[in-house]
């Protein structure tokens, strides 16, 4: 690697002569070694899933959750350094709760992504800190209905709060991925971590931008994708963890919750079956690792 030995890669916030911040790129390396995380934005909700690689037989099965709740209607999953992921979640929770304190309404997924993008970017600016060693996927459901203002006592104004425009549609699913550089994009399907290449290829097959995939099918697809992404890393055991957020009429009523055990098991069963059927038509070979640069 050309960066090594030049001296420009020893401190955060320092540009190399060709305009790169190597410490951020190295942080991305930490992400690329982590278990695969994905998120799928369905028409009536969002699914988050993660491949938890089992590092020791002594770990308590089913414990050690990696997908966290940020606010009632929002969750996050990350790949990379697990303690950094917890830091991310802790800050995201603070942002969500301070938003509620100021605006008396839940934060939207887009706003949270923006706040967290800003926060992570700040950790690329100073030599006194290091960038986050995680890429985080945030999924949420922004209420499509007029919500009561937090703490309101009466019925409130008939037009509702927040200066809404009549006839315009509000709310819906939100899915964002935030990288160590602080850059973030909205996604139909997002993947990060070790198996991201395979996962991305699988996500693209789902034609998510058409907006036809239901949440229930999304859960099953997510399980399949994690199993497929793990196939390149077969020597290690893993646990699948999945959460979801449905619309207000759906199974979680707009809340971020764990996928129920029976549905999770059903999805895992289908995923294993799909994988066995796939074994003969092995087409994906490892693509060269893409250059993840800190984009402008």
């Amino acid at each position: 690697m050309t960066s090594i030995g030049t001296g420009y890669d020893l401190s955060n916030s320092v540009f190399s002569p060709d305009g790169r911040n190597f410490q951020v790129e190295y942080a991305v390396k930490a992400v690329e070694n982590g278990g695969t995380s994905i998120g799928i934005r369905c028409k009536d909700g969002v699914v988050l899933a993660v491949e938890k690689v089992i590092t020791s037989k002594l770990l308590k099965p089913g414990a050690n959750k990696r997908i966290a709740t940020i606010d009632r209607h929002m969750g996050a999953v990350s790949s990379g350094l697990v303690p950094d992921g917890r830091h991310f979640v802790s800050r995201a929770r603070d942002e969500a709760s301070s938003w509620r304190k100021v605006y008396k309404t839940p934060i939207t997924t887009a706003d949270l992504a923006s706040r967290m993008g800003g926060y992570m970017q700040a950790y690329t600016l100073y030599s006194s800190v290091r960038p986050f060693g995680v890429t985080a996927i945030v999924g949420g459901w922004d209420s499509e209905l007029e919500l009561p203002v937090d703490g309101q006592v009466g019925k409130g104004p008939s037009i509702g709060s927040g200066g809404k425009v009549e006839g315009k549609k509000y709310g819906g699913p939100g899915l964002y991925m935030i990288e160590p550089s602080g850059i973030y994009w909205g996604y139909y399907g997002a993947a990060t971590g070790k198996g991201r290449q395979t996962a991305k290829a699988e996500l693209e097959k789902l034609n998510l931008s058409e907006g036809n995939l239901s949440l229930l099918d999304g859960v099953k697809e997510a399980a399949k994708i994690i199993y497929a992404a793990h196939a390149d890393n077969k020597d290690k055991d893993f646990e699948l963890e999945m959460t979801w957020i449905s619309n207000l009429d759906g199974p979680t009523k707009g809340r971020h919750e764990e996928v129920p055990k029976d549905l999770l098991e059903e999805a895992e069963r289908l995923a294993k079956k799909a994988l066995e059927g796939d074994d003969d038509d092995e087409e994906t070979t490892d693509k060269p690792a893409e250059e993840d640069k800190m984009e402008e």
Binding site: L10, Y26, V28, K29, A30, E32, S127, R130, G133
Partner: peptide
């Protein structure tokens, strides 16, 4: 190893 002097420096492999 130049990457092991403090806890705010990632090595090129993403290790601290």
């Amino acid at each position: 190893n130049n990457y092991d002097n403090d806890s705010v420096t990632f090595s090129p492999q993403g290790r601290i």
